[in-house]
Design a protein around this nucleic acid. Structure first.
Lengths: 243, 243
DNA sequence: AGAATAGTGTCTGTAAGACAATATGAA
DNA sequence: TTCATATTGTCTTACAGACACTATTCT
């Protein structure tokens, strides 16, 4: 049997009769399981995502089929690596599964949407992959991918002040100003610098490293790090987002 | 081809060689897609869920296979109806999809977990279905269902004061005391009656009907209703839960 | 009258927005 | 010295917990 990879991604645009599948008990079964990944970061002060150009020249989310030897998280990481060159996202979480049997013209293919985060300096290797800034609004994507992107943005904004989810984007050590830029890009609003620092410290999700750095001009800034590299929930700050 | 229903649910306990499936393009495909539903309500002041007894006499969540003619929400409603007699849950939302290919001994079967809510007076018709109170802790369930239940409880607690999710459990019109009992059962803590009323009103998710009812003894109580029957997000109250 | 339930009013500590004032380092 | 950035401090409003007090209706 040929590798499943052969029918993933690049053949998506192909038309023709849909595929079918049947299991050994004689019942109709899905043709496959797919994943789509919303890979976000904050670049040059703007929330940005990775898109790939498919065979129809549409901009779509990176994704592809799940193999029978891996779970969906592994498939998401694998397709990111193959299609965008991103080795391992710092954060990966499930968003929603789309199950309408007619959602994919190739046949009955449930699709799992994922949210992934990487640091800003992440470079892409695939020729078809590109960073797209969200500062000018949400771009129109192929298939149902615009809707998936909206879900991803709701999710990361919803978690911003209630978890350490920004650990997926910020470097290991960062200044308050750096953190604020990332939070502002995600939230879509500006925060007062002093209030921001007070409230982020108040979450107890970050701790000072006792080191200082010069950024450009002006006073040197204290460095902070997240207490945990894994996703954890904090006390929660009821701070404005997207106002 | 026989109805897919024949291989759902009751045959789950059967051992033997796993099923396999292949699609018309010659690739391995999932054997099927399943759903499992955490159906919750508040009965006699206790958060309760519906369980069914499977062929191995294990207590498990109601669920079964998704057909190629329906999406997963429809499958969840259908299996609830068939296995528990619950006609249509007042609320149904996706929790998480489990995709480990080895999670089901019958073969490669991704499973979607759902949270469903019904009013307390909902009676069950299936002989194998029962209401289980959660007041004495979380019961041990078969398969990975205990973990799914934990996710469901986290979800409903997380949304309690940020959405009108209780609309799935409370009757169309209710007193503040009734609402408080439901919120307390979900949150797992007690609320001060006057503070509760003040804060629930403050969400603007409920409105008074201008009617009053006698409950048993004491002063008559004002009736309220949720402004929307669909799930909506409120301003959000930063109230304690599960303390 | 007394008990039981519903509802109002008030006090207090904390949270979060706004912004003034000070500290530190480079040009 | 002057500018730019970082950090501390203050003021104010709103929120949420606690709880005293009033209102209504039944036995």
């Amino acid at each position: 049997m040929p590798a499943q990879k052969a029918h993933s991604g690049s053949s998506r645009a192909r038309r023709g009769p849909p595929w079918t599948a049947e299991n050994s008990a004689g019942f109709i079964s899905p043709v496959g399981v797919a994943i789509d990944v919303v890979l976000l970061s904050v670049r040059d002060g703007a929330l940005s995502l990775v898109l790939v150009r498919d065979d129809d020249d549409q901009l779509v989310l990176p994704g592809g089929f799940v193999l029978d030897t891996e779970d969906a998280e592994a498939a998401a990481s694998r397709h990111l690596r193959e299609k965008t060159g991103v080795e391992a996202p710092r954060h990966l979480e499930q968003l929603k599964t789309f199950t309408d049997p007619s959602r994919d013209h190739r046949g009955w293919i449930p699709s799992l949407a994922y949210l992934a985060l990487v640091p800003p300096e992440t470079d892409l290797s695939g020729e078809r992959a590109l960073w797209q800034s969200l500062s000018d609004g949400v771009p129109k994507l192929g298939y149902d991918h615009t809707g998936i992107l909206e879900i991803a943005l709701d999710r990361i904004r919803g978690k911003l002040w209630w978890s350490n989810i920004a650990v997926g984007i910020l470097p290991g050590e960062f200044t308050m100003t750096r953190a604020r830029e990332v939070y502002e890009a995600i939230a879509g609003i500006k925060y007062d610098p002093s209030t921001f620092a007070r409230d982020l410290n108040h979450t107890a999700l970050v701790e000072p490293t006792r080191e200082h750095v010069m950024t450009s001009r002006g006073r040197s800034a204290a460095l902070y790090r997240f207490v945990s590299d894994d996703l954890v929930w904090g006390e929660g700050r009821r701070k404005r987002v997207r106002g």
